[in-house]
């Protein structure tokens, strides 16, 4: 079910408040029908996550059509105008280049780039973040990007766990336990759940889960006995954390910072806090005012 500002909301109420596309509605339906309480402080915070998930899916499709190629870390390549290629296959943002422009260049000049599937997932998450967060905020947060597998920038606040529900826009992993050691880049495939029963994996394109498994099975060693399989955890960016950067700077400075039991950080406007102060104090371990 969906809780907004402490109270349960009806599906129609949420739909009418601003979610229209079929994909947005699919995401909302999964949340709404769940036994898990999806809690948001405001409608805007909910819409941010839903739209971010759609942005992840759109960014996956755009990456596929950008012409970028699949390569292992020995053969990675990038546009030297924006990135420095390290001997370990990592791309380091060049000094003075805005991070948003460098990420967008991957999509504009895809043919100049080649990388592994985990790096592709991070690029997709950055591209989706650009769609959701103002460029000046993005460039401030990710001023020193290095692209290399899952060695992500902490400011994406990536969460990797077994979720209560799988939602479109989740990143999943299909493991290939008997991969041929001559092609270890196929030891598994990071895939984006596109929400229509298909997945996107860099190097394998758009396929059903069975299609992904079949493609990876072809990359197994001779005499392999184990088939590839979808793993249980899912990976998502920290939606609630990134949400705070969508707000104007002056308002952001006036926000309250909350920490839940697992010390996960989120923020709240002073107005929201004051209208329901006792409830916030009860549900959160610490309430801290930012330094003005």
């Amino acid at each position: 079910m969906i809780i907004i500002g402490g109270s349960q909301k009806k599906k129609e109420e949420i739909m009418n408040a601003g979610l229209q596309s079929p994909l947005e509605q699919t995401i909302l339906t999964v949340m709404y029908d769940s036994h898990f309480n999806y809690s948001f402080r405001t409608f805007d915070a909910l819409f941010f996550e839903v739209r971010f998930r759609v942005a992840i899916i759109d960014s996956s499709r755009e990456l596929y059509y950008s012409g970028v190629q699949f390569a292992d870390f020995y053969r990675s390549r990038c546009n030297p105008m924006f990135w420095k290629l390290f001997p370990d296959g990592a791309f380091q943002l060049k000094m003075g280049v805005p991070a948003s422009e460098a990420i967008l260049d991957i999509y504009r000049n895809g043919r100049q780039y080649a990388f592994e599937c985990a790096t592709a997932m991070i690029i997709i998450l950055y591209r989706a973040t650009i769609k959701m967060v103002p460029p000046e905020q993005f460039n401030r947060l990710f001023a020193n990007i290095r692209l290399w597998g899952w060695k992500f920038d902490q400011d994406l606040q990536i969460v990797h766990n077994v979720p209560p529900d799988y939602l479109p826009g989740d990143i999943r992993y299909v493991k290939n336990p008997d991969v041929n050691p001559l092609t270890p880049e196929w030891q598994g495939e990071n895939v984006v759940d596109l929400g229509d029963g298909t997945f996107f994996g860099h190097g394998l394109g758009f396929r059903s889960l069975e299609g992904m498994i079949e493609a990876l099975a072809l990359r197994r060693r001779p005499g392999a006995t184990r088939m590839p399989y979808l793993m249980v955890p899912a990976t998502r960016p920290g939606f609630s954390y990134l949400y705070q950067f969508t707000l104007p700077r002056s308002e952001e400075n006036r926000r309250i910072i909350l920490f839940d039991e697992s010390l996960k950080r989120s923020t709240l406007s002073v107005e929201d806090y004051e209208t329901n102060q006792s409830e916030w104090i009860k549900n959160y371990i610490t309430v801290r005012f930012p330094i003005p």
Binding site: W150, H160, Y173, G188
Partner: peptide, 9 residues
């Protein structure tokens, strides 16, 4: 362990 380098950092 089942986890994988390409799935986590």
């Amino acid at each position: 362990n089942e986890n994988n380098y390409e799935m986590t950092a």
